[in-house]
Simulated assay, not measured.
Amino acid sequence: MNENTGRNFASNLLTRIVLLIYSLIVLYPLFWTLMTSFKTTTEFYDNPWSLPSSLSWENYINALDKANLGAYFFNSILVTAIALVVCNGLSFAAAYVIARFQFPFRKWLQKLYMGSLFIPVAFSIIPLFILLNNMNLLDSLIGLSLAYAASAIPFTIYLLIGFLITIPKEYEEAAAIDGCSNFKTMIQVILPMAKSGMITITIFNFMAFWNEYVMALSFITTETKRTLTLGLAYLMEIQRFSTDWGALFAGLVLVMLPTMLMYALLQRKITAGLNMGGIKG
């Protein structure tokens, strides 16, 4: 008994040490980026690894105002919000039909969405470019939002099917007895019960849309319509001929902060949602 206890203690201790080292490796670059965003240019060149002598909020003011990241931040919020509404709305309706109804080629349709997961997004850039150009939506935040939504629909449908399959059929039967239509049942009965799945997929899609760069670079040409990732890349180009590194790192923090906060606050819901969706998915 004592020998087994000793082995378990040693195993747990080793695991904790490995996890601690891994946590330091992951967290230190984030901590360094945050601290550097408060440094002055002189402090950065004197010792880039030291802590700032004071919190220089001027870097964030320069990033938001002079580098125009404030406007790009708003563009990213707008694009992400529209893409989430379109993607989640269409995907939930499609997943509901595939998961809850029996009809010809249902399995093949589900496999089609699964197969779409293995197509790299880069392969769709040219077709989407031509399509948006024909629809007069090129260099448009609305067009970029629709492109984001379309790229995420296969993954969203695939994950939501796993959630919806776990909901018992008796709820829909009871709703039908009460006179609810299929659409009303989907919105008022099934959607609230799939809340954890919707939260999970919203978080994943938010992080994907917020950090997306390739489509934004391909479809947006007007400076005032740039998203935050494009604005940050533009700021990095400026730094090749400038010395305001504090503003650059402040911009990096502004890009990372929303996704980090969302994941930190909703981490348990993500884990619970994935576990629930994986029961029968």
Rank of each mutant, 00 (worst) to 15 (best):
T15M: 15
R16P: 01
V18D: 01
L19P: 01
L20F: 15
I21L: 11
S23C: 12
S23W: 11
L24V: 15
I25Y: 07
I25D: 02
I25L: 12
V26N: 03
L27Q: 09
Y28S: 06
P29M: 10
L30R: 12
F31W: 13
T33Y: 07
M35V: 04
M35L: 13
T36P: 06
T36I: 02
K39W: 03
K39G: 01
K39M: 05
K39R: 13
T42V: 08
E43A: 03
E43Y: 08
Y45G: 05
D46P: 03
D46K: 15
P48Y: 12
P48K: 13
W49L: 12
S50I: 00
S50V: 00
P52N: 06
P52V: 00
S53E: 14
S54L: 01
S54V: 01
S56P: 09
W57P: 09
Y60R: 04
Y60A: 07
Y60G: 09
I61Q: 14
N62G: 14
A63M: 07
A63E: 06
A63W: 00
D65T: 12
D65N: 14
K66W: 07
A67K: 11
L69M: 11
G70K: 02
S76W: 02
L78R: 11
L78D: 05
A81S: 14
I82P: 08
V85N: 12
V85T: 11
C87L: 07
C87K: 02
N88L: 15
G89W: 08
S91C: 06
S91F: 10
S91G: 03
A94I: 13
R100T: 09
F101D: 04
Q102V: 13
F103I: 06
F103C: 05
F103N: 04
P104N: 13
K107S: 13
L112G: 13
Y113D: 00
G115A: 13
S116N: 10
L117H: 06
L117S: 05
F118R: 10
F118N: 08
I119T: 07
P120N: 15
A122S: 11
F123W: 15
F123E: 02
S124P: 02
S124A: 15
S124K: 07
I125T: 02
I126Y: 07
F129R: 00
L131N: 03
L131F: 14
N133Q: 14
N134K: 14
N134C: 12
N134R: 15
N136I: 05
L137D: 01
L138D: 02
D139Q: 05
S140C: 04
S140H: 06
I142A: 10
G143Q: 03
G143V: 04
L144W: 04
S145K: 02
S145T: 00
S145D: 03
S145M: 05
L146N: 01
L146C: 01
A147K: 01
